[in-house]
Design a protein around this nucleic acid. Structure first.
Lengths: 228, 228
DNA sequence: GTGCCACCTGTACGGTGTACAATCGTCAAG
DNA sequence: CTTGACGATTGTACACCGTACAGGTGGCAC
């Protein structure tokens, strides 16, 4: 049947950087970042491990690509009728959203310096919003850096946030944690005993992320109010 | 000469969890976390790789130990005459300090849930301070979680913070980054062009961490003021 | 045709974490 | 003293990892 011309190489058997990155992202979403190995990914793509090295110089470079592709999903539209605070909240909220959709790969963004098109555009939009909040370029840079950092780390590493519908096992773990905390000597650890429930409770992810964003935005706003 | 009784086993040839953890931490400080491999660590300790598995069930368990040992270095004393804000700043500042002293191993704390003695005591002190700021146990738990998270991630992953006295190479990279940013189309990326200098500049670590702490504390204080 | 060249395969090397069995040194009980 | 038990360590082996390097292969331009 039809031969693959150079054009339809993208949709059939042949490999492109795009398909590799998409495969890596899918694999990471499905089985975690540690499942993204050159050999495994190659098998998934029906290809030899070394084939990937034609398109990427190293695994690290491939992961850079994955990180960049995540950035591209962020919704950069801003509601011009909203205040800068609301705009910033929307932008960061969108970031949290796409990071949560790829939570395993999220830590990639906190580790590496992405300089893709999408990353540049996101940074541009963010800086613009913050600048309109009354900060200098230098301050805006610092704030943007920390905001980006906060958002990626927010998603990357919460221990209690491991949520599974299968509530059996994990509820057990939580109950054990709670019992442990409650069994601590109250005269030595009054606050831990008192907070045993919230500490051991599985956190509602939505609430967790909302709180994290609130905290960050409160800090930024308070800085905006303080100076000027 | 003298035999090793069970007592002096700690100071001479034999292995203990302590010595292993100390070795791992030293290795991580000296050559980075990726140098901490079972084989390498064993060689460093003058022992066979599998010897470590007598004291730790897995490498992960060993790293848990390293994380716990870092927690133990945090200064938990509180100045009773200070306000809760100042106390919180001091505590978090101390955390940042010890994390910076082990910056390679710092990301361990953001990944895993530590439940060592030291971690419990630190959490207790932190919760106590925050509770005295007028927050409920549940709120205090959320805040403490985020504060801990912020602090560890602050140290863990800043890209620009890679500072070396050998300024040759890195200055080159910075200059290239700066030129790149400045060469962007100003009508498309006005904020990036405008902030080319601060964006490409190597960040002063002290200023960076101070700013991160300020931002976090500002957020917490503003939350404290808002409610009540 | 013939050669080029983008793309992919085959093989190999040194590294990793760790399972499993054998070994050694010390110490309590006979 | 001998004898076991047992805590601590070694030796060997396996499956997996990232990737260097050399060779194939198929479609295109000439």
């Amino acid at each position: 049947m039809a031969r693959n011309s150079r054009q339809d190489a993208t949709n059939k058997g042949t490999l492109t950087p795009r398909t590799v990155i998409e495969g890596a992202l899918a694999l990471s979403d499905a089985e975690g970042l540690q499942a993204v190995t050159i050999r495994r990914l190659a098998r998934e793509l029906g290809v030899t491990p070394m084939a990937l090295y034609w398109h990427f110089g190293s695994k690290d470079e491939l992961l850079d690509g994955v990180a960049a592709s995540i950035f591209e999903e962020v919704d950069l539209s801003v509601d011009a009728s909203a205040s800068w605070r609301e705009q910033l909240r929307a932008l960061l909220g969108s970031m949290v959203g796409v990071l949560r959709a790829h939570s395993s790969a999220a830590i990639l963004l906190s580790t590496r310096t992405v300089s893709s098109e999408g990353s540049l555009r996101a940074t541009e939009v963010m800086l613009d919003i913050i600048r309109r909040g009354g900060f200098s370029p230098t301050e805006a840079t610092q704030i943007a850096r920390h905001a980006l950092h906060t958002v990626t780390n927010l998603v990357g590493g919460e221990p209690g946030v491991v949520v599974r519908e299968e509530s059996g096992k994990l509820t057990d773990a939580r109950q054990r944690a709670r019992r442990f905390l409650e069994s601590l000597p109250p005269e030595r650890y009054p606050r831990l005993v008192e907070a045993a429930a919230p500490l051991s409770e599985g956190v509602d992810p939505d609430a967790y992320f909302a709180f994290g964003l609130d905290l960050l935005l409160a800090g930024i706003e308070s800085m905006a109010a303080r100076q000027r």
